[in-house]
Structures are given as structure tokens and as C-alpha cells.
């Protein structure tokens, strides 16, 4: 396109400004406010006390660890299951329209309410999940999902994966639909097998989609809140206390506004690290496959 530089700049400004204005007001401004709370005390003096306290707070490190474990495990399973679902939904079968509606339900049920449902499903005395495991002879007795640190963690993993697989599947499905049919047809002529098409065509072409999905899911999992707040309240023994509920608790329940802000500031550092990591992966893949 041959366009005059001044026109180009005018258009660039026009296209970016609504997003930028809104983000400055609703994201950058609160972020700066927050950093101010983290380093300025009630008397208006600059202090590193709150940041330092956070670094020496075992609960913060526990929450960091819980959050990272949670994000890595859930995102891994969501990507795998989501990819399979997307492939299925992209295939032709009878009732595809209905399936494409049904599979959205987990994503559409409000987490805060579904978490109440999960509490029931997992409860040992009344819950169908422990008893089903027992009746299928997978466990010796109905397991106690919510009464044990390890099992509670598994329970929130299951609940989160269940909910977010549709999100992943939908994004990958959009990516799948963008692959031109001609490419598959030309590979059919070459006599490629189903797996061959998958490995040499589908997956490489989906890499940009995978990366976007992975990044968003990972960051979202990093901020997990409602589910934990309702299902376990971070217990037992803080085994499921992720960063967001911890910050919320600090800020609003304990009213340690400065402490909450300092913890949030460190969480922002985590996010920067994740973004840099994903940027690195993107660049490596770009060199290898020549796509973003």
C-alpha cells in the first residue's frame, strides 16, 4: 500500500486511540495508584517496608507456589482436551450443531455458582464423584476430596479444567476453520495419512493460535479467584490459597491496603516474567517454522 506518511499516522492514531484511552483510564491509572499504595505509607513517606514484608511473608510464597502449580497443570490439560474437542467439533457428524451449543455450557455457568455445585459433587458423604469412583472400583472407599490438602488441590484443578476447556476449544476451533481446505486436498493427493496431515499441516498452522490461547489461559489461571473463594476458601491449611484470593483477603478482609498493593505489585512481576517467557517461545518457534 502506498500511503502518505501523514495520512498513515492519522489513521494509526484513529485506530489505536479508543483502546489506548480506555486502557489508560481503567488499567494504567489503577496500576499506578496501586504501586503508590505499595511504596507510600499513610503519612505520605516513601517506604519499602511493604514490599520487604511481602518478600518475608511465607503465605505469599505459599500462594505463589500454589498459583504456579495450578496454572501449569490446568493449562496443560486444558490445551490437550481443548485441542481434541476442537478437532471433534470441526469434523462432520450428525448433531454437530447441538454439540457446538452443549459444549459451551461449562464456560457459561457462572463460576461462583458452579463452585457451589462442585462442593456438592466432591463431598464425600453425598457427592456423586467420590461414590462413582468407588462404585467403578477405582478407589477402595469413596475418597475425601475436600478434606485433604492434596485432594483439595486436585478438586480445584478438576473444577477449573472442566470449566475452561470450552474456552480453549473454541479458540482452537476458530484457528482450525481458518486453515484453507485446499491445503488438505493437496495433501490428500500426495497420499498423506491422517496423522501426517495432523503433524505436518494442522499443528504447524495452529501454532499462532496455540500461543495466544496458551498465554491467555495461563495468565487467567494465574488470577484464579471465584472458584477457590467459594469452593475451599483457600483451605485446608492454605493448600489452595492462590495469589488472587490472598490479595483480596489482605486488602478487604484484613484491610491491609498497603500490604495487598505490595503483594499485587509482585504478582505483576510474575506476569511480566510469563510474558517474556512466552515472547521467547514465540521467537524460537518463529525461527523454526517461519510463522508467528
Amino acid at each position: 500500500m502506498v500511503i502518505k506518511r501523514s495520512t498513515y499516522i492519522k489513521y494509526l492514531f484513529l485506530f489505536l486511540s479508543p483502546a489506548i484511552v480506555l486502557i489508560v483510564i481503567f488499567k494504567l491509572y489503577p496500576l499506578i495508584q496501586n504501586i503508590i499504595y505499595a511504596i507510600v505509607n499513610d503519612d505520605g513517606h516513601i517506604t519499602f517496608r511493604y514490599l520487604n514484608d511481602t518478600l518475608h511473608d511465607p503465605a505469599f510464597w505459599n500462594s505463589s507456589w500454589v498459583t504456579i502449580k495450578f496454572a501449569v497443570i490446568t493449562v496443560f490439560f486444558e490445551m490437550v482436551i481443548g485441542f481434541i474437542f476442537a478437532l471433534l467439533l470441526n469434523a462432520s457428524f450428525r448433531g454437530r450443531k447441538i454439540m457446538r451449543t452443549i459444549f459451551l455450557i461449562p464456560w457459561a455457568l457462572p463460576t461462583a455458582i458452579m463452585a457451589v455445585g462442585w462442593k456438592f459433587l466432591f463431598q464425600q458423604s453425598y457427592g456423586p464423584i467420590p461414590w462413582l469412583l468407588y462404585w467403578l472400583k477405582l478407589t477402595k472407599s469413596p475418597p475425601y476430596f475436600l478434606s485433604d490438602p492434596k485432594m483439595s488441590f486436585i478438586a480445584i484443578l478438576i473444577a477449573d479444567i472442566w470449566k475452561t476447556v470450552p474456552f480453549v476449544a473454541l479458540l482452537i476451533l476458530a484457528g482450525l476453520q481458518a486453515i484453507p481446505h485446499e491445503l488438505y486436498e493437496s495433501m490428500d493427493i500426495d497420499g498423506a495419512s491422517g496423522w501426517g496431515k495432523m503433524i505436518y499441516l494442522t499443528i504447524p498452522l495452529l501454532i499462532p493460535t496455540f500461543i495466544v490461547t496458551l498465554m491467555f489461559r495461563f495468565l487467567e489461571a494465574f488470577g484464579v479467584f471465584d472458584l477457590i473463594w467459594v469452593l475451599t476458601q483457600g483451605g485446608p491449611g492454605n493448600a489452595t490459597m492462590a495469589l488472587s484470593p490472598y490479595i483480596y483477603k489482605k486488602t478487604f478482609m484484613w484491610m491491609e491496603i498497603h500490604g495487598g498493593a505490595a503483594t499485587a505489585t509482585f504478582t505483576a512481576l510474575y506476569i511480566i516474567i510469563i510474558i517474556l517467557l512466552i515472547q521467547y517461545i514465540r521467537n524460537t518457534l518463529k525461527r523454526r517454522y517461519g510463522t508467528t
Partner: peptide
């Protein structure tokens, strides 16, 4: 005023004892 925090400390360690950690 710090009751919410004291309560949190208590419930956290009680569940640690109840789960025998």
C-alpha cells in the same frame, strides 16, 4: 481491629492440625 487476620491465622493452623500436617 485485626480480628479478621487473627481469625485467619487460627483457622489456617487448625486445619493443618486436623489434616495432620
Amino acid at each position: 481491629p485485626i480480628w479478621p487476620k487473627l481469625s485467619d491465622i487460627m483457622s489456617r493452623y487448625l486445619t493443618k492440625a486436623m489434616t495432620q500436617q
